[in-house]
């Protein structure tokens, strides 16, 4: 009991007196795993701490506009970081930290590996995409569908709140297949995937934006610079992104 009380006290005191060098970064769902890995690598060589919050890019955009305490945004498009910059939420324009790839993924259907034809067959009853209005990967998936399948679709289109929920729908078997980010399945050996040709959707350039709140935060600056190092870039590539 005594030890429990001590731990609790320690916990409370830590949460109240966060060290000054903690950066809060808002990360688009597709990049969450990669961001956590990057944060881990960064913290090994630095005294700073990184806290990762994730959601769809559209949601994070609104949260930042409503005063969410984020220092850095790692979005899934360039549009929202650009808008935030135009609206005065940042002093420096965004740079492309990664270019994402869209894949069609299914847990059980091997036919997915041979391309979009499976979407014209009866094998699929539900196809999951992320909400095109708020999630850039959902928007890309919608472009692929518009370019290749005529509506009405022979299956039900299910929309995830963000790309992570979309993947969960398919991974739990509730949807037969889903359009997800390459990064989400990069380290998952299960299922069948097909890389969607880049000609079927506009490139998913993902922007990193140092927000005004992060301008005075050494941790945010350090992590922002770390993202542009070769070490970080090789990690980003490892997760299936293009990173120059």
């Amino acid at each position: 009991m005594k030890r429990f009380t001590l731990t609790l006290l320690l916990f409370i005191s830590c949460s109240q007196y966060l060290p000054a060098d903690t950066a809060r970064i808002a990360v688009s769902s597709n990049f969450t795993i990669a961001a956590q890995k990057l944060a881990l690598l960064f913290e090994q060589t630095s005294t700073h701490t990184i806290q990762v919050s994730s959601g769809s890019t559209g949601k994070l955009y609104i949260q930042i506009r409503q005063g969410a305490p984020f220092d850095l945004l790692l979005a899934a498009d360039m549009e929202r970081p650009q808008r935030l910059f135009d609206e005065g939420y940042a002093n420096t324009a965004a740079f492309i930290y990664a270019t994402g790839k869209l894949v069609l993924w299914s847990r059980d259907l091997a036919e997915v590996s041979s391309g979009l034809d499976v979407l014209k067959s009866k094998a699929i009853r539900r196809l999951a995409i992320a909400n095109p209005k708020t999630a850039p990967y959902g928007k890309a998936a919608q472009q692929v569908l518009d370019n290749s399948i005529s509506s009405p679709y022979p299956w039900t289109l299910v929309k995830g709140d963000n790309i992570a929920q979309t993947y969960q729908f398919a991974a739990s078997g509730n949807a037969d297949a889903a359009f997800v980010a390459r990064a989400q399945i990069a380290l998952d050996q299960r299922g069948y995937a097909w890389d969607v040709p880049q000609s079927l959707y506009l490139p998913i350039h993902q922007g990193a934006l140092l927000l005004k709140r992060g301008d005075n935060n050494p941790a945010a600056h350090a992590f922002y610079r770390f993202l542009q190092t070769d070490k970080a870039k090789s990690v980003i590539q490892h997760y299936g992104y293009i990173s120059q």
């Binding site: 539900r126 999951a128 909400n131 039900t156 299910v158 929309k159």
Partner: peptide, 11 residues
């Protein structure tokens, strides 16, 4: 609904 709905219009 957010967890089991899938945001389908009319459904």
């Amino acid at each position: 609904v957010l967890m089991i709905g899938g945001n389908i219009s009319g459904e």
